[in-house]
């Protein structure tokens, strides 16, 4: 059986995919909430205002969450999954908590008009495990593209689709 190939999400995905509260895995008013945010830029350094970012993460204790409720968030249930479209400046943001456990990263999926298939990457926390198998396989310069920058109330993770500072994208084949 041949797997279905991907196709671009196109320019009209706002009709079907983003939803209210999609980027609020933890309510922003929660004292434990952090902001994970960044810009998506193309090979010319221009913002990508029609990208869609999904994150999927463990809880702070490292547990993999198998709770429904992402579409109708009740303010209490952490589902581990979120979706955010970029704005006119190519900026996205999530309100969430830091992932914990033995694989403490955000699994990130990137979709955009002009991008013919989705891209996978990871956003690691600022001081990652020095023995991490993926990070140790990369040059320092490339490794840096996978590590979120600490900010007073959260983390910054910019995504560069092409060119200087191109984000490391992953194949899981």
């Amino acid at each position: 059986m041949i797997p279905a190939p991907g196709q671009t999400v196109g320019p009209f995905f706002h009709l079907g995919l983003p939803f209210d509260g999609g980027n609020e895995l933890v309510p922003p008013a929660d004292p434990a909430a952090i902001r994970l945010h960044g810009n998506v830029a193309d090979g010319d350094g221009n913002p990508v205002p029609d990208a869609l970012i999904e994150i999927w993460q463990p809880g702070p204790d490292g547990s993999v969450v198998q709770e429904p409720g992402s579409f109708h968030r009740d303010g209490w249930t952490f589902t581990g999954w979120g979706r955010a479209a970029t704005d006119a400046d190519g900026h996205y943001w999530f309100s969430t908590c830091a992932p914990g456990g033995s694989a403490p990263f955000f699994a990130v999926t990137v979709f955009a008009r002009g991008l013919l298939d989705r891209l996978f990457t990871r956003a690691y926390l600022p001081s990652p495990d020095p023995a991490d198998a993926l990070l140790t396989s990369l040059s320092a310069q490339r490794r840096a593209t996978l590590i979120a920058q600490a900010e007073p109330r959260g983390l910054r993770f910019d995504i560069r689709l092409q060119g200087e500072g191109e984000t490391v994208f992953l194949s899981h084949g």
Binding site: G114, Q162, E166, F169
Partner: peptide, 14 residues
Amino acid sequence: SSSARHPELDPVPA
């Protein structure tokens, strides 16, 4: 519109 929006480096196996 794919011209500036496709990665130029190969994906890294993980």
